[in-house]
Amino acid sequence: MALLEIQGLTQKFGGLQAVSDFNISIEKGSLVGLIGPNGAGKTTIFNLTSGFYQPTEGTITFDGRDTRGMKPHKVTALGVARTFQNIRLWHDMSVLDNIRIAQHYRMGYSLWDCFARTRNHALREAEIDRIALELLDAMDLRAYADERPRNLPYGLQRRVEIARAMSIQPKLLLLDEPAAGLNSADVEGLIRLVQWIHREFDITIWMIEHQMKVVMTLCSEIKVIDFGATIAEGGPEDIQTNPKVIKAYLGDENI
C-alpha cells in the first residue's frame, strides 16, 4: 500500500480548472519530484494534499485514510508536513518557539494542565523542548535558537522552515520550491540537507522545484504537469529527454 495515493484529483476555481485528473502513488521512502511551468497547478496540488483546499473531485488517501473533509491541522497530525513557496515562518517569535509550536497536535496536555501547571504539563513541555532542541542541533540551527527568523539570512530561513516541518515528525514531507531564492552555495547545502533528512529520518519526500539540478540530483521519480494535467512521468533521464516536457518548458519549436 502506497503512503500517499491520489486518484482523479480535480480542482476548479470558478471556471478555471487548476488541476485535472491528477493521479499519483507515492511509495514509502521514495523521493519524488513534481515539476512544471509556472501556473501549472503544482502548489494547488500541495494545497489539496495538505488539506488547505477541498478537492472538487477525486480522492486523496494518506496512510490508508481518506483525508476528504479534514481540516489542514488534522491532515498534518496524520503526518503530512510542508514548507511554503514564500517562506511562512512566524517571524516575530524565536526560532525555538517556531519549532515548539509546530508540535501543537501532540502537545499532550489540556487547558487545565496549562492553568494548573500539572506534572503532566511539565513533562510534556520538557519533551517538546527536548525534541525541538535536538532537531535544532541536528540541523545546525542551535546557535540561532533565540533569534527571530526575520533577522536571519534567507538561506537560514529556508532551513528553519524545513526544521519546523520536521518537528511535526512527518511521514511525508512536502517541499514547495525549497531552492527558490537561494544562491548556488545554499543550493548545494540544501541538496545535502534533503538527502540527509531523507536518509536519517527515513521519511518520504515530495518536492516541487524549478531548479533542474536539484530535482535531477535528488529525485528518483519525477512527475511533470502543465495546465493542471500530467504530461510525463519517469526517472530523471526519461524526463530530460521527453519531447513533451521540452515543449512545455521551452515552447513549441515550430512557431
Binding site: L89, D92, H104
Partner: peptide
Amino acid sequence: KGIIAICQDEVAAEIMSV
C-alpha cells in the same frame, strides 16, 4: 503560544497543526 502563531501567520499555523 498557538494564538501568537495565529496572529503572525494564520495559514501557517493551521497547516503546522495548530
